[in-house]
């Protein structure tokens, strides 16, 4: 049985952290699997030595394994990992600026930087995402800016966890707030945008014609505009949902890419059900199309 000294254990943990960092973001390999393979390799190589393993003994094995950064240097990486690496120097600069601050500001900033650095790598992004969200709540007028920043950091964390084949676990409570709010707003905007143009179109009916149009629609002149707006909105939204659900039936990965991680729960069968329901609403809408055509003809003729 092999036991590592404390110093050797820290050395190994650092090295495995480098392995994770070097291979994550490469879609062609599994970072978790490589990390486990390297761990197994180290223990197999040290089996002959046996007993308590010191840092120099471990270092000899790790030297033969080589620097992880060179293992997959030529392979394409994901955009999130690429951005992460690009942003790392910015983070280091920020820490350097904090160190340059005077007095209490320096102490506070230094404490914060130390805490972020001290977090486990798995929790770092999730903690930053929640920190930005909380800062937005405190400095409320700036909430939208902090929310968007938090959303992108949270998405990076979700993407990295997926690439490593990990589940978010308890980390999800730190990344969900910003992901949920932004995803909900985006979803509502994407689902209901046809209502705007439809209502705008209903305002095109001239005031002087509302009596004649009301007769065709069998409603009072006052109800012409709201009824027309509702009719047009139902038609536009149901048609849009037919198109959107057909896209999801054909490419089921679209919701997952737009609204991670919640969108990945939407399956092809869910999209097919929405397609059927939207189709049914659209067919009902079409049953009244003759009235809409007559109204359109009346308006165009009068104009």
């Amino acid at each position: 049985m092999i036991r590592l000294t404390n110093e050797a254990q820290v050395y190994l943990d650092d090295y495995l952290s480098d392995v994770r960092s070097a291979v994550s973001g490469h879609s062609s390999v599994s970072p978790a699997e490589i990390e486990q393979d390297v761990r197994d390799h180290v223990f197999a190589a040290l089996e002959e030595t046996g007993g308590q393993i010191t840092a120099p003994q471990l270092a000899a094995v790790l030297d033969r394994l080589g620097p992880p950064a060179e293992w997959v240097a030529d392979e394409p990486r994901s955009i999130w990992k690429y951005l992460g690496d690009k942003l790392k120097p910015v983070g280091h600069k920020a820490v350097a600026h904090i160190k340059a601050l005077p007095g209490e500001a320096y102490q506070a900033g230094r404490g914060l930087a130390a805490r972020v650095r001290g977090l486990s790598p798995d929790w770092r992004l999730a903690s930053i995402a929640f920190g930005l969200f909380a800062l937005g709540m405190i400095a409320f007028p700036l909430f939208p800016a902090f929310l968007i920043a938090s959303y992108f950091v949270a998405r990076a964390d979700v993407a990295l966890a997926r690439e490593r084949g990990e589940t978010l676990g308890a980390r999800r409570w730190l990344v969900y707030p910003s992901l949920l709010i932004v995803s909900l707003v985006l979803f509502l905007a994407l689902a209901a945008w046809p209502i705007g143009p439809a209502v705008g179109l209903s305002h095109e009916i001239p005031r002087t014609m509302k009596g004649d149009v009301g007769n065709i629609m069998h409603v009072s002149p006052k109800a012409v505009q709201p009824v027309a707006a509702t009719y047009l909105a139902i038609g536009a939204v149901s048609l849009w949902w037919i198109i959107a659900s057909m896209i999801v039936v054909r490419w089921p990965g679209v919701p997952g890419a737009l609204f991670p991680p919640f969108g990945s729960k939407i399956r092809r069968i869910d999209a097919a059900i929405v397609l059927l329901l939207s189709g049914a609403v659209f067919v009902c809408w079409l049953s009244k199309i003759d009235t809409a055509v007559r109204v359109t003809q009346e308006v165009l003729w009068q104009l």
């Binding site: 062609s28 390999v29 490589i34 390799h41 033969r64 080589g66 620097p67 060179e70 293992w71």
Partner: peptide
């Protein structure tokens, strides 16, 4: 093999 660790990403890719 200069760096022994190079083999593991290759094995992972072959598995995938």
């Amino acid at each position: 093999v200069i760096s022994e660790g190079t083999v593991y990403p290759i094995l992972s890719r072959f598995k995938r």
